[in-house]
């Protein structure tokens, strides 16, 4: 039995396009411990997003096992996986992926619709999360009325609102100016330090990687050794 938050065991992944087999990941084998803040780096096309998607349970490996809290998520069916994600994973995307027709508050409330909460509890928690990312005064705003950095903060509030243990972020600063990017990294740092969230972040931004506590490099489908920061 492992105490790891996520345990990847000999994971491989290939895509099939037009009868061609495209290997992306080969024999990935490592653990992510509870409270880790891991940055995945590597050149474009090296499979960073693919690996993150496997960890987050939105894609299935071609081989190996991914154990999260003792369950092999590679063996869950589509519906079980959806329910598992709802309870365990918070997503932060490069392009925020907020619902344009919903307000900031409604966007943050979305994941709570999948939890056994009543309307008032949902509202309270969503307001709390928005307050945490510093957007208490923007709850009624639609995404189009917010800057990129503000939208990404709404997305972070959405990712943490249901209190998942694992947060995955794919190039969370990739679409932001330097200042907004720094604000986002500071938020992630707080989440990791103060709330003990396990964070896995894909980035090719050295600044972002420096903010993480561990760094792994992906090259040609294989993972480098672990670099540990302060």
């Amino acid at each position: 039995m492992s105490t790891a938050s996520v345990s990847l065991q000999h994971v491989s992944k290939h895509y099939e396009r037009g009868g061609q087999l495209l290997p992306v990941l080969t024999d990935i084998h490592f653990d992510i411990m509870p409270g880790d803040y891991l940055a995945l780096m590597g050149p474009s096309g090296s499979g960073k997003s693919t690996l993150l998607n496997l960890i987050a349970g939105i894609d299935q490996p071609s081989g190996g096992a991914i154990l999260v809290g003792g369950t092999d998520i590679a063996r869950l069916n589509d519906r079980e996986l959806a329910d598992w994600r709802a309870a365990n994973v918070g997503f932060i995307f490069q392009f925020y992926n907020l619902m344009p027709v919903l307000t900031a508050l409604e966007n943050v409330e979305l994941p709570l619709l999948l939890a056994p909460l009543n309307r008032r509890e949902r509202r309270e928690r969503a307001l709390f999360a928005l307050d945490l990312v510093g957007l208490a005064d923007r709850v009624k705003h639609y995404p189009s009325e917010l800057s990129g950095g503000q939208q990404q903060r709404v997305a972070i509030a959405r990712a943490i609102v249901s209190d998942p243990a694992l947060i995955v972020a794919d190039e969370p600063t990739g679409d932001l100016d330097r200042k907004s990017g720094e604000e986002i990294l500071a938020l992630l740092d707080t989440l990791n330090r103060d709330s003990g969230k396990t964070i896995v972040m894909v980035t090719h931004d050295q600044k972002a990687a420096d903010a993480a506590r561990q760094v792994r490099h992906l090259e040609k489908g294989e993972l480098s050794h672990l670099e540990i920061r302060q």
Partner: peptide, 15 residues
């Protein structure tokens, strides 16, 4: 399409 992808990632089922 992207919104659908995000909703599914968040945990909304296909149904």
């Amino acid at each position: 399409v992207r919104e659908i992808g995000a909703l599914r990632a968040i945990g909304f089922r296909r149904s």
